[in-house]
Computed example of a mutant assay.
Amino acid sequence: MITLQRRQLVGHDILLARHGNHICSMRVDRSSGRVVALLDDGTVDSAPNLIAPGLELPATVGSVLREDWKILAASGAVAAGMCALMVTAAVALGSMTDPTTIEMLSAYTIY
């Protein structure tokens, strides 16, 4: 079940416990799975971002978009194509000037 809530970054808590108010800035290094902190004396410290490597974290909106972008793009393209097809059909049917054809199409739903 997708909860789509913000993930709690364990590395932030570890670094705050280690250094407290001496942290100038923090950033998440997603490639290595760590949180990196710049301290006020110019040194850098990092902490792992996971409690356990095999732990399944809840999905967020960003993680779903990163994992499923191909499916979302394909379904968006199909929806845009169907919309264009329907608009083209509506314009083509609206431009018919033969009254008998229009009457036949409107009476077709009776049967």
Score class of each variant (00 low, 15 high):
3 T>Q: 09
80 A>Q: 13
51 I>H: 05
37 A>E: 04
37 A>F: 06
34 R>N: 06
75 S>C: 07
40 D>Y: 06
12 H>F: 06
35 V>M: 05
9 L>S: 10
21 N>G: 11
49 N>R: 03
44 V>D: 00
57 L>S: 05
87 V>R: 11
90 A>Y: 12
97 T>I: 05
85 L>T: 04
62 G>Q: 14
87 V>T: 13
12 H>Q: 09
41 D>L: 06
108 Y>N: 04
6 R>F: 01
58 P>S: 02
46 S>R: 02
6 R>G: 00
109 T>A: 06
11 G>C: 03
52 A>Y: 13
64 V>A: 13
26 M>K: 09
36 V>I: 15
4 L>R: 10
7 R>Y: 00
50 L>T: 10
92 A>N: 08
91 V>M: 11
99 P>Y: 02
67 E>N: 01
94 G>W: 01
3 T>F: 00
18 R>A: 09
73 A>Y: 08
15 L>G: 05
8 Q>H: 15
27 R>P: 00
89 A>H: 05
111 Y>W: 06
74 A>F: 08
3 T>S: 07
51 I>G: 05
57 L>G: 02
110 I>A: 15
86 M>Y: 09
68 D>L: 09
89 A>S: 11
9 L>Y: 04
17 A>T: 14
75 S>E: 15
11 G>N: 03
4 L>V: 01
23 I>K: 06
90 A>T: 14
24 C>F: 02
68 D>C: 10
82 M>Y: 08
94 G>I: 01
56 E>T: 08
73 A>D: 12
31 S>H: 06
90 A>P: 03
46 S>P: 02
27 R>E: 15
9 L>M: 07
93 L>D: 04
100 T>A: 11
86 M>S: 15
18 R>F: 07
98 D>Q: 11
100 T>E: 11
77 A>W: 06
15 L>I: 11
24 C>V: 15
32 S>C: 02
18 R>G: 10
71 I>S: 14
5 Q>C: 01
98 D>M: 07
46 S>K: 01
90 A>V: 12
